[in-house]
Amino acid sequence: MRLTLKVWRQKNRNTPGEFRTYHTEHASPDMSFLEMLDVVNQELILKGEEPIAFDHDCREGICGMCSLMINGIAHGPKQAVTTCQLHMRSFKDGDTITVEPWRAGAFPIIKDLVTDRSSFDRIIQAGGYISASTGSAPDGNTIPVAKVDADKAMDAAACIGCGACVAACPNGSAMLFTAAKAAHLSFLPQGQTERYQRAINMVTQHDEEGFGNCTNIGECAVVCPKEISLDTIARLNRDLVVAALKGLAPSTGVSEAKAG
């Protein structure tokens, strides 16, 4: 396949970036998008140029490291796949493809297509856990969980934290991520104790990180490689209202998590 790539190149956080155009004739329809970028990088290295920096790890669609805005769509044109599982057969010979990093205030660009997504880690630190002694694994079914709840918790837990929701959001909001991380606990008995405190803690941290605010547009759910539903956001909203009615305030440690 012959391809023209318009790729965002940015030396570091402080240097303004720009689009550069690259051509390759060695892409195959069987390659994944990342393998195609590997080929382009090999060509750049042979020419003595700096290769394009991009995030990747498992390349199996489960780790959440790969990102990339491809032609303006997070993770490219296919639904429910990550960039590593997007194959070049989804493009046509001779196509021009624009490749950009996630763009959001809370995702500073480290280099080229690589962004710093540690703001997500801090949202999880603010409440995406249960304060229970873990010890060894309990026997199966010691705590009964209804099948329907287990399924919903699992659907929410499928979130790999890639950040496509933020990238796609016209408001740069991370509400789908935050809601998924809250919902996979709020559907389970173990998650009930801290449920409402969790909601207010995670939303407060979300705001402090500089993410935008959800206006229920739904672009996030469309691009989510794990098809997390907007239902999770409604659930988090409801939990936050309950937290307010209960008079809960964000517990200390929310801001400290950021510093630490």
Binding site: E100, G105, I217
Partner: peptide
């Protein structure tokens, strides 16, 4: 709040992506 997030690292102004694609309803915008 949202503008702060979307204008950061933007290509120009609030145009966040070189090729913006909308996937959901027009009314929301």
């Amino acid at each position: 709040q949202s503008r702060k997030s979307t204008t950061a690292n933007a290509v120009s102004g609030i145009r966040r992506y070189g090729e913006q694609k909308r996937q959901t309803s027009y009314a929301a915008y």
